[in-house]
Amino acid sequence: MSKTQANTKVAVEEKSFKPTGNFVQENQKSLLFIVGAILAMVIVYIAYQKFYIAPREITASNQMHVAQDFWAKKDWDKAIKGFDSYPGFQKIIDDYGNTKAANLAYFYLGTAYLNKGEFQKAIDNLTNYRGDDSMVAAEALGGTADAYVELKDYDKASTYFKKAADKANNKFLTPLYLKKLGLVYETQNDNKSADETYKKIKSDYPESAESQNIDEYIARTEAKL
């Protein structure tokens, strides 16, 4: 290849990769269309939240208070199914499924089924709770674990008790779920894990109610090691 040919090739390559500087001008219509589409989507989303979701949220919350009263009174059937013209938690979920109230209803409904002894229904609803409240979330996980214990699925029970203890992260619920976790380990004859769990309660939560007689549990598991 001659020097002239080489120089020509380099010049062509440089020209091919040199920015033209007029991309915006050449694609102005496309860019305006994209920006307009994005703005339209934002406007639709805001309108959807303000004029559809927000009113439904208020309605769902207002209708749910009677079911909450029945739940507090442990009248599980009325809490689940409703009474007279007042909806139960199941109808709140069915009618207002995309609201925060319906999400909370999953927790109430799951615990109601747990107390009624309908453990699979309890699991189905409690695991659908997606709230931000760490206390409620921890109780939903703990309730799920309780249901799995009743179904004798101890592997899943231990998994959910661990999740509940971690999620709670406080001196009230965490030692409670750790103690239940230890009992599940004992049921599985995993005395080493049970012993470690009980000792964690003693060391990390010495003032908790669960810690008051935890030495008895530790002595029991150590005797089996």
Rank of each mutant, 00 (worst) to 15 (best):
A164P: 02
N128R: 14
K202H: 10
V184Q: 01
G142N: 11
A105M: 07
G182L: 03
F119W: 10
G117K: 07
Q120I: 08
A140R: 12
S193T: 11
A147R: 11
D124Q: 12
I93N: 03
F89V: 05
D132Y: 11
N189Q: 13
I92L: 04
L104E: 09
E196F: 03
D133S: 07
A101Y: 01
Y154S: 01
L151F: 10
A122E: 00
S158M: 12
D153C: 11
T187Y: 09
K200Q: 15
Y198K: 04
G182V: 01
Y129N: 08
S193Q: 14
T159S: 12
L173R: 11
G97P: 09
E196D: 13
A165L: 15
K121N: 13
D166E: 08
Y129W: 08
K162D: 10
D132K: 15
N170S: 12
N170G: 11
K202D: 10
D190K: 14
Y106C: 04
T174H: 02
A112R: 05
S193V: 09
A147D: 06
D153Q: 14
Y160W: 12
R130Q: 15
N125C: 07
Y185N: 04
R130P: 09
T187Q: 13
Y108V: 03
V136R: 13
S203D: 14
Y177R: 09
Y198D: 00
D195M: 08
G182I: 03
P175K: 02
S134R: 06
Y160I: 02
A140M: 08
F107S: 12
F172A: 13
K200P: 11
L178Q: 07
Q90W: 00
L183S: 05
Q188A: 02
T144D: 08
L181A: 06
Q188D: 06
Q120H: 10
S158V: 07
N170R: 14
S193D: 09
L181I: 09
M135F: 11
Y96W: 04
I123E: 06
Y106S: 06
M135L: 15
K156D: 03
K91P: 06
K199G: 07
Q120M: 14
Y177M: 11
T187N: 11
K162A: 14
N125V: 03
